[in-house]
């Protein structure tokens, strides 16, 4: 699964940048069409939930999603055979 920010919902509060243990969310720089500066994702494939939620059958961690006041953080399925980067944190 892939981590994604819903552009139509995010209001750019940057709270997600404070809570992720991997610091996947980083404060963004460019405003989008609505003038909102969306956070950027730094190597989102490191997120525990992306990798393991199907295996465990439940949401793992998920703190960013619970914290996001605007319900903008979610996970989407990959396309079939979509090339994926593998990042492992030691």
């Amino acid at each position: 699964m892939k981590l994604a920010i819903d552009e139509t919902r995010c209001k750019g509060c940057n709270l997600c940048t404070k809570v992720c243990p991997y610091h996947i969310f980083q404060a963004g720089k460019k405003p989008n069409k609505k003038g909102i500066v969306l956070p950027e994702l730094d190597r989102p494939e490191r997120c525990a939930n992306c990798r393991l939620q199907y295996l465990y059958g439940r949401t793992l961690c998920g703190v960013c999603q619970l914290t996001c006041p605007d319900q903008a953080i979610h996970w989407v399925d990959e396309e079939p055979y979509e090339p994926m980067k593998v990042a492992i944190e030691y």
Binding site: T8, G12, C13, N14, T67, C68, P69, D70, Q71
Partner: peptide, 22 residues
Amino acid sequence: FRKDRLPHIFCAGCGNGTIINC
């Protein structure tokens, strides 16, 4: 959630949204 009602009217960073999630 009533998805058609989102995004909600709370200000950016308002904690109310977090409490609804929880």
